[in-house]
Simulated scan of single mutants.
Amino acid sequence: MMDITDIMEHIPFARHLGIDVIDAEEGYAKGQLELTNELSSNPGHLIAHGGVAFALADTVGGAAVVSLNHTVTPTIDMRIDYLNPATTDLIAEAEVIRNGDSVAVAEVDVRDKNDTEIASARGIYKTGDHDGESAWTDSENITSFIEQ
């Protein structure tokens, strides 16, 4: 089976944003993202768009869930509380707090490189019922990487 951090490198959207999952094992994951001008919500002043923190939290939360389930785990729902504006690179850490037969729940903390709390998120991911054909079971996508 391929390493989860290697699998996450193949997600086009995460690659586009520059999300790097640096650790994912046993229900824990950590990822980082370099804050660039393209990810800013304010011209001329580097402040991360809220969607950047959300995407980082969702990706890292998903990696934590995949590390336990070794299969695709699409996001069902995610809520996020924004605590401070991000003006530097971001780091997210996720921990699975429930891993059931049909859903898993991960809590994710997003901080900047100065350790300022940026956001707190909770994601719910689908872990079961992958019986039918779907975008996630197509052999040409990430499922094939997980099964390697």
Results as ranks from 00 to 15, higher is better:
Met2Arg: 12
Met8Thr: 05
His10Tyr: 08
Ile11Ser: 11
Ala14Lys: 00
Ala14Phe: 01
Leu17Phe: 06
Ile19Gln: 04
Ile19Arg: 03
Asp20Val: 09
Asp20Tyr: 02
Ile22Asp: 09
Ile22Glu: 12
Ile22His: 05
Ala24Ser: 03
Glu25Pro: 05
Tyr28Arg: 14
Ala29Arg: 00
Lys30Glu: 08
Lys30Arg: 10
Gly31Ala: 04
Leu33Gln: 00
Glu34Gln: 15
Glu34Asp: 12
Leu39Ala: 03
Ser40Phe: 07
Ser40Tyr: 01
Pro43His: 05
Gly44Arg: 06
His45Phe: 13
His45Asn: 12
Val52Leu: 07
Ala53Trp: 00
Ala53Cys: 09
Phe54Pro: 02
Asp58Lys: 03
Gly61Met: 01
Gly62Gln: 02
Val66Tyr: 05
Ser67Val: 00
Ser67Glu: 05
Ser67Asn: 02
Ser67Ala: 00
His70Val: 13
Arg79Phe: 13
Arg79Trp: 14
Ile80Trp: 05
Leu83Ala: 08
Asn84Arg: 08
Thr88Pro: 03
Thr88Asn: 09
Asp89Leu: 06
Ile91Lys: 12
Arg98Met: 15
Asn99Asp: 15
Asn99Ser: 14
Val103Arg: 04
Glu107Trp: 11
Glu107Tyr: 10
Glu107Arg: 12
Asp109Ser: 13
Ile118Asn: 07
Ile118Val: 14
Gly123Asn: 01
Tyr125Lys: 00
Lys126Cys: 10
Lys126Ala: 11
Gly128Asp: 06
Asp131Trp: 15
Ala135Asp: 11
Trp136Gly: 10
Thr137Gln: 07
Asp138Asn: 12
Asp138Ile: 10
Ser139Arg: 11
Glu140Leu: 14
Phe145Glu: 12
Ile146Lys: 05
